[in-house]
Amino acid sequence: MRRFLVLPTSRAGWGLLIAFLTLVLAGSWPVISWVNRATLVMGLPLLVVWSYVIIFACVAVMLIGNRMVERDDHE
C-alpha cells in the first residue's frame, strides 16, 4: 500500500481532475497573459470579466461533480 498514490479510478474521475486543472490553468500564466489587454467587455476590463468567468466555471464544474458523486452514492 505504501508505494501507491491516490489517483482517479474512473473516466469520470479523470474528467473531473482535468476540469479542475483546466480551471487553475485558466487563472494562471500563460493563459492570463492572453486576456491581459486594456479593453472593455460589457463595460468591464477584460481581466475582470475573465476572473468572473473562472469563478462561475468553478460553480459549474462542482455542480457536475456533485451529480457524479451522488450518482455513484459515494462520499
Binding site: I32, S33, N36, R37, A38, L40, G43, L44, P45, L47
Partner: peptide, 28 residues
C-alpha cells in the same frame, strides 16, 4: 453602469486595466 467608470479609466489611465498594474509590481 460600471461602464461609465471603466471607460474613463481606459481613456485616462489604461495602465490600471492590465498587469503588472499601475505600480508595475504585479507580474504574471
Amino acid at each position: 453602469s460600471f461602464a461609465g467608470v471603466f471607460e474613463r479609466i481606459a481613456a485616462e489611465h489604461p495602465e490600471f486595466l492590465t498587469l503588472p498594474g499601475a505600480g508595475g509590481d504585479m507580474s504574471f
